[in-house]
Simulated scan of single mutants.
Amino acid sequence: MEHDEGPVQRLTEPECWQLLAASPLGRIATHVHDVIDIFPVNYYADGASILFRTAPGSKLVELTINDQIAFETDGYDEWAGWSVIIKGTARALEHQAEIDAADDLPLHPWIPTLKPVYVRITPTHISGIRFERAPEPERS
């Protein structure tokens, strides 16, 4: 961790990737004109990018109009919680070699629908925090 600031600590980039690799579900936020949308996605983190699958529809259309994206995943146990946020660009995989490589990854839809399009998020910024879970301190 980069800073020990009491109950909230900033995570290093390697710590962020470690948590990303261990978590199966995240959310992407898109922004087109004055509309912001958030979509849950299951994903695969390879230590340099995030990959998720989708079907043609609003998510893919929005990413085509504006490839700037935010991605967030989090988790907790009885002692601590954490959150990792990635800001970056998203693009659908188009080259067959990329798609074939993605097909070999352990990334499968959680629901029984076809999701033929792979989307890669390439980070421009990654940050994360870990925080203690404890009762609220006494108010003075």
Rank of each mutant, 00 (worst) to 15 (best):
E136Y: 14
D104Q: 15
H33E: 14
A92G: 06
E94L: 13
P109S: 05
K59V: 10
P112A: 08
L93C: 07
A45Y: 06
E62H: 15
V8W: 00
G81T: 06
L93K: 10
R10I: 02
P116G: 03
G6K: 10
Q9M: 13
D100P: 05
R120M: 01
A55V: 05
P7M: 08
A45S: 14
L51K: 10
R10P: 03
I50N: 07
R91D: 03
I111S: 13
I28H: 03
F71A: 11
P14Y: 02
I50V: 13
M1Y: 08
N66E: 05
A48F: 02
I36A: 13
I86Q: 04
R139V: 08
L105C: 03
V119G: 05
T73W: 00
D74K: 00
D103M: 09
V8R: 11
G75L: 07
S49N: 09
E72C: 14
R130L: 02
R139G: 00
L51C: 11
R10A: 15
A48S: 15
E94D: 04
E15F: 04
T54M: 00
R53I: 06
I121E: 01
P56G: 01
G88W: 04
R139S: 11
W110P: 01
W79Y: 13
H31N: 14
K87S: 09
P116R: 08
T89Q: 14
H33V: 03
T54E: 00
P56Q: 12
P123R: 10
T73A: 12
A92H: 03
T54Y: 04
W79P: 00
P137K: 07
D104A: 15
Y76L: 12
L114W: 00
